[in-house]
Simulated scan of single mutants.
Amino acid sequence: MPEVPSSASEKARARLSLEQFEALLAALRSDGWQLTGPAVRQGAIVHTRLSGAEELPRGWTAVQAAGRYTLARREDEALFGYSVGPQSWKQLLFVPRLRLMRAQREAEGFRVEPEPAEPPRLALIGARSCDLHAIAVQDRTFLEGPYEDPDYAARRERLFVVAVNCGQAGGTCFCVSMGTGPRATFGFDIALTELLEGGHRFLAEAGSERGADLLARVGAGPASEDELHAADAVVERTARGMGRTMDTTDIKDLLYRNLEHPRWDDVAQRCLACTNCTLACPTCFCSTVEDTSDLRGEVAERWRRWDSCFTLDHSHLHGGNVRHTIRGRYRQWLTHKVASWWDQFGTSGCVGCGRCITWCPVGIDITEEVAAIRATDGARSGA
């Protein structure tokens, strides 16, 4: 895993031309890394396998609001001129569907076939600070508890991370409120800030020895003082342009003492329990296990797949559902995300990426719900 730098100021930052950036991607491929990064597909900027810089969303941005996402052309040729898309990197580490076991019938029973041990070596291109924080949150779930998830651990170890400091905030972003961005401060091998004025180039910061070695190989040179200031200005401008804010003061106790607040009834009337928010969320980790067999009974398989606390069966225990109402399921999700997650993992489960707001089909806004409860703290349903 990439080492964690103590601070951005303690790492030398270098100038990387557009041609050197393209060479960097080519060097990663030649070293055996599979490039995975943003590209325009079917009206969205999604993560996909890349062959090189020519597939990046040059000149594209995304306009996001509650329940709304559209692509728009920029007035420049920025490669990373957008905030975040519908997908996080969760799908590559905690994969949506994973076969846990396959058993083949033999004469005297079943033979369990081992699963492939080594996932591909992935180079994540364009990872944002909020998503790096989300990976760290999932690390606590899958790596730092009493039991380590072997598949997650194997995938996590085989990453090279090229982060990008955000040059544009999205309409639903609130990473500043959560202390998770827009500057990447840890979890990367290389972090880039895209500069457009005075020539298209990047300011590059190494976060690991292999990142520093790669920058040296492609000939990254020293940055000027003007370029250092310009890169800092990009991040500062993005921080001032957040589309949303969330007041996190005493948020855990705020939600704990408002479990019967009438706002839960209000949001339940709008929520479709469609699970979009949990699937788009970069930290949600609910899953279920399914056993299947073929019609002849020759092969049996066990699969893990993503699930959601919004599905009715997810809370099914001993013949009944613990949370049988949408009100109860939304309350569970929100209070877990920003309150009880602190009790479990010592951190918030929300990184302020805004995906749950953008991809909610009815435009439910987590920042608006928290603000509404705070505004009428102590109210009770039916009062």
Rank of each mutant, 00 (worst) to 15 (best):
L93D: 07
Q34N: 07
D343K: 09
A280G: 09
R73W: 00
C284Q: 02
E157A: 15
T292Q: 14
G328T: 09
T292K: 12
A117N: 02
S287K: 03
A8I: 11
R121H: 14
T48F: 04
V4F: 05
C353A: 13
I364Q: 10
D365P: 04
C277N: 04
L317P: 02
E301D: 11
A339E: 05
G187M: 11
H324C: 05
V218D: 12
G207K: 11
L28W: 02
R183V: 05
R380I: 12
R121L: 14
L228K: 08
V137L: 09
S83W: 04
V46N: 03
E118I: 13
L143W: 05
L317G: 02
C271Y: 06
G81W: 00
A379H: 08
V267Y: 11
A206I: 09
S30E: 15
W303N: 01
W306D: 01
T275K: 08
R111M: 06
C281Y: 03
D291N: 12
G43W: 08
S381I: 10
E19Q: 14
M1R: 06
A231P: 05
G109T: 07
H318P: 01
R140C: 10
A27S: 15
L71T: 05
I190W: 07
A371T: 01
Y256E: 12
P182D: 02
G219V: 07
